[in-house]
Design a binder for these strands. Sequence first.
DNA 1: GGTCTTTTTTAGATGACTTTATAAAGTGTG
DNA 2: CACACTTTATAAAGTCATCTAAAAAAGACC
Lengths: 404, 404
Amino acid sequence: MPSPRISLANGTSRGLVLDLIRSRGPISRVELAEATGMTQATMSTVVRQLIGDELVLETGRGESTGGRNPVLLDVNPTARFAIGLQVESEFNTYVVVNLVGAIVGRMRTTGVGSADPATMITIVAREVDVMLERLGIDKARTLGIGIVAPGPLDLERGVIFGPPHMAAWKNVPIRSMLSQLVELPILLDNDATAAAIGDFWGGDLGSSISHATIYMGAGIGTGILIDGTVFRGASSNTGELGELIVPGPDGKSVTLESAADPRAVIADARSRPNAAEHLGLVGQDEMEDFKSIARAAVHGDDLAIELIGISAGHIATAVVAMANLFDLDSVSLAGPAFSIAGPFYVRAIIDRLQRDFFAREQHGIRVQLSTHITDAAAVGGAALILQTVLAPRTMGLAGGPALR
Amino acid sequence: MPSPRISLANGTSRGLVLDLIRSRGPISRVELAEATGMTQATMSTVVRQLIGDELVLETGRGESTGGRNPVLLDVNPTARFAIGLQVESEFNTYVVVNLVGAIVGRMRTTGVGSADPATMITIVAREVDVMLERLGIDKARTLGIGIVAPGPLDLERGVIFGPPHMAAWKNVPIRSMLSQLVELPILLDNDATAAAIGDFWGGDLGSSISHATIYMGAGIGTGILIDGTVFRGASSNTGELGELIVPGPDGKSVTLESAADPRAVIADARSRPNAAEHLGLVGQDEMEDFKSIARAAVHGDDLAIELIGISAGHIATAVVAMANLFDLDSVSLAGPAFSIAGPFYVRAIIDRLQRDFFAREQHGIRVQLSTHITDAAAVGGAALILQTVLAPRTMGLAGGPALR
DNA sequence: GGTCTTTTTTAGATGACTTTATAAAGTGTG
DNA sequence: CACACTTTATAAAGTCATCTAAAAAAGACC
């Protein structure tokens, strides 16, 4: 009766089963056995362990299909928590998520640009403790802190190389410094990867096999998941699509970043006569100006719609390229740049895929906005902790981020 | 002492160990234990089984490092064989490879364009038997036939959809038809994927984590390997890069296929005054005309060098895009189009990667011609059999080709 | 020759599975 | 409404890949 036997070594099956319960909602032991290929007997014991750890609850009975009716299992959302921390120069964003990836607490403080690393890290440690206490969450049920940082990183050593405008943070071993202060496991990763795992853990991806989350903040990056596992490539530098070539105005070749990121949209706007005043561009904070344009587009302003449409068209071109290379079945958009204008981008991508995706006759691609658009990276940091601790996976052995 | 424990379920470890012995040449049990994370005791038993199956031989003793000197293990090359068959409209190419992926027999006959499917399949079955007999290879030691076919395929059902110029082969269930005639397991896959596995099994890739084989015949495709496993995406349609956008002449955007494949090179040549005669273009067989240009380039003809250089530049652009998305550490070129002009392409790719690859500071990318350039797909078909039977792997659960 | 190292094998234990059998809790039928 | 039949869940015993611990084999070094 039981099929081929996919099975997995080392109690990894506990993680696999937890993953299934999380993603396939209320589900019976029998259905789990079918989905994994394990026997019902095995499933019984695996589930017993998960219930013993309080990770899973019996939440009711299902309908009978001719015999005894099944006991339905669900994840116990408040059994464990994880913290996500996105460090940026202007703000730090903290989130606390529960086992199903839902936000139970959120906080934003002044960012790492405002203090030297050593000072800032002590502040962070204090803020973490304060936040947990305020939420009434026992540290013992907190699995760790997932830090999401901009710019190049050394995931294995837990070191930030720092983007240009955060020079003081160059080569700061943020993981070891922080883990000495808060006694929690800590892990470091980049924004797009984190956002992708956040989408996955939040359950939005269903059983996608090949997924990409496009993360657009100041720049553009991609996090790629193969069967729910981060695809890291040779050195965790996958999904770099900023330099991809897209057809610019007049069919000239330009790079995606130079044509589609918020800065490009603003520059395009400023090149139009009277547009800066018309759209209320301030010229201080790029993301704010971009959001002004996005808001105008949402309200039906023709110029703004055109500007956003151009950017969305370029992103759509890039997504088609990725879809053809990765044979994607799921795409989501995350990051502050999509918080207002997101639907324009989703529409543009769907339209383009329908026309140009190579395998469009074989299967569709689900395109959606990430649930936590703006906080996607921080939520993803927390989800990375959940996944690493509760449902460890390996793939493309590039090491991935170390957890310490 | 033994490290984390990567271990793998279901006797998959036998395959893993065989893989390591194959790729890391003569190697001792202790080194194998280190490489896999298993204990030396476990390795002893695993190796005993492999030796029992005659897949592995003890081939000598290594140098002592202060104690007993290690027994070195090697794959027994002639223990098993696999057949690769590339079907094309003009020729069918058969190869027989041994356990280390080396060619031990090769044959080329008139292609599938010359007869209706049912007739052709009986011919193929006969030719397979004749070939094995001529080589003195027992069918019992032959693991199967890997068929590589052009155009869209249904890997799971083993059906050819057929390219436009092979209309009679549309929807032919080649796997089931052939497996009834020759009593061997049969598997169907596309050329680029097969070529990639061929490179891997031939040992050229070392321990690459993220590899792409660019296959250029009439069109351009890519086979992608993550840690030696085919990356199949949602529906085995990964690596489609023909429609990727590259900067054409004057910076205008064009698709890779329209700018770089053999047909494009010939068209470019014909657009130049007197070039057709100068280069000896016949206008019958595209690949032959392309090879004429390639030969002229190798002999130093300026125009030919320019034409090939343009094509190579476009391919290089595409490879950079792929390298940035997949964080590649290895690229190889296969297919008849690279058989003569290959070095021009390799050079162009290396140069471009050095300048534009995103993670160039973290690691280099090995770029090389496939060992069996022209026969890469056929050899790869055989290698797919070897991998499927001897070292099964799973990833990106898109099913992969079924073996029956 | 004796002692130390390194490699390989043996023997027993463990744990994640499986198979087989049994209990529990339903549905449907005469 | 008792009985047969299903479906779901657990229990018991066996299998298999792996581990730990310890011994055996084979060479290096003094």
